[in-house]
């Protein structure tokens, strides 16, 4: 239940914003720009917390159960957040500068939600594993990376 609600909210948010964008016209308005900023900030928070876990996985810093758990908890919380308002219609890479979000996102909402669910699951598994030891943390890393990568592969414009 708690898993499903944000996803439904995400879908409703997209639908509502799609309607709004049609009314607002094709120019990029402030709300759209703010939404793009917000999702980039969200991604940055994923990266920051993954950095703490990754440094331990790479054995660049000693394993610490408390900070691993804290970072993994943040990661899982981020994945559970409702991102619906981050993705308004017209905020794709063809409609505006400064984003690599492909228009395919809005044409494949069902698949996007499946991929979002994969990240929720993988980060929940990381949350459960991170405090149990370095091997647990390392073992959970691959699924998180796979979930991030699956969406990026399908829906992000390659680096130019």
């Amino acid at each position: 239940m708690s898993m499903k609600t944000p996803l439904i909210g995400f879908a409703i948010g997209l639908a509502v914003l799609a309607g709004g964008a049609v009314v607002a016209g094709s120019h990029v308005d402030k709300n759209v720009e703010a939404a793009v900023k917000a999702r980039k900030a969200h991604m940055q928070l994923y990266a920051y917390n993954l950095g703490i876990l990754g440094a331990m996985a790479k054995e660049e810093v000693p394993y610490d159960a408390a900070s691993a758990s804290a970072a993994a908890g943040n990661l899982a919380a981020l994945a559970r957040m409702n991102e619906g308002s981050y993705w308004p219609q017209g905020s794709d890479s063809l409609s505006m500068e400064g984003t690599r979000a492909l228009p395919d996102i809005w044409d494949n909402i069902d698949d996007v939600l499946v991929k979002a669910k994969a990240l929720t699951d993988a980060s929940a598994a990381m949350e459960a594993a991170a405090g149990t030891g370095l091997d647990g943390l390392k073992g959970a890393m691959g699924a998180v990376g796979g979930a991030c990568g699956a969406c990026h592969k399908a829906y992000r414009q390659p680096d130019s």
Partner: peptide, 26 residues
């Protein structure tokens, strides 16, 4: 270590991820 991690989880040192066909390689 960065290269090994990338080939294991797909994460770059900035914790971005691989894209394109590299996802399959990883």
């Amino acid at each position: 270590g960065d290269i090994v991690e990338y080939l294991t989880s797909g994460f770059t040192p900035e914790f971005d991820t691989a894209g394109g066909h590299m996802v399959e390689v990883i």
